[in-house]
Design a protein around this nucleic acid. Structure first.
Lengths: 111, 111
DNA sequence: TTCGTATATTCGTTTACCCATATATGCGAT
DNA sequence: ATCGCATATATGGGTAAACGAATATACGAA
C-alpha cells in the first residue's frame, strides 16, 4: 500500500532541504520568522554584504519558501510557510543533543 | 533576551540540514525508518550501486544521524534520532502544498 | 591459508555552490 | 531626465560534493 516516491518528487524534496542547508539562509529564515523585513533590514541584521543577502533570498524565493511584497522602493520578504521553522527547530534540537552527548563523553574521558 | 547563535553553531546546524539535502540520503533515511537494515538490503531496496550507498551512509554516520551495529559480516544501520524523519516529513508537506498550489494555478489558467 | 561475500575507500572528473566585487535595474524625488 | 537609494544579477575564482569504476579491507567458512 506504500507507494514509492518518484525520483522527481524526491529530488524536489531534496531541493527544498537544500534551501535550508546553508548558515546564511538559516539565519535569514529565522530573521523572517520574527516578521517581514526588507533587504536592507536583513543586511543590517546579519551584517552581510547586500549582494550575498539578495543571492540567498533568490534561492529561497525560487523554492517558494519566502515571498515578496513591494512597498514603494522597498521589497518586503516574508516566510511563505512557517513549518520550515519547525523543521529547522527539529534539526537544531538534534544538533543540541549531539553536542550534549559529545560533552558528556568528553567529561567521562576526563575523569 | 534572545541570544544569537554563534556562527559555529549555525554552521553545524547547516551541516545537519545538508545531510538531508540529497535524494539518495532522503531515501536511505526513510528506508531506515522502517527498521534497521544492512548495506546490501539498502542497496537492493534502492537499486543503487553499493559504493554509492556506502558513501552516503558515511555522510550520515559522520553527522550522527545513523549509527551502526556489526553482526557477523553484516553491518546494520539504524536511525540515530527519529526526529530527522519528522523534519523530512515537514519539508515533504511543504513541497506537497507548493505542488498543489501550482496545480491549482495551472487549472485556473486553463479555464 | 584461500575463497567468497559484505562493506569501505580511492581515483579522476564533473557539477554545483559559495563568496566578493562589480555592475545593472527599479523606483521615488527633484 | 537625472540623482540616489533599494534591490538584483553577472562575473570570476575557490571549494566542496557528486558520480562511476575500480580497488581495498573485514569477516566467516572451508
Amino acid at each position: 500500500m506504500k507507494k514509492p516516491e518518484t525520483q522527481e518528487l524526491r529530488t524536489m524534496h531534496a531541493m527544498l532541504c537544500q534551501a535550508i542547508a546553508d548558515p546564511t539562509r538559516i539565519a535569514l529564515l529565522y530573521e523572517l520568522n520574527d516578521g517581514p523585513k526588507n533587504v536592507t533590514q536583513l543586511v543590517n541584521a546579519l551584517s552581510l554584504p547586500q549582494g550575498t543577502v539578495s543571492r540567498h533570498l533568490k534561492t529561497l524565493r525560487e523554492r517558494y519558501l519566502v515571498h515578496t511584497r513591494r512597498d514603494g522602493s522597498y521589497i518586503h520578504y516574508e516566510l511563505a510557510d512557517s513549518r520550515v521553522i519547525d523543521a529547522l527547530d527539529l534539526m537544531r534540537a538534534i544538533k543540541s543533543d549531539i553536542l550534549a552527548r559529545q560533552r558528556n563523553l568528553a567529561e567521562a574521558v576526563m575523569k
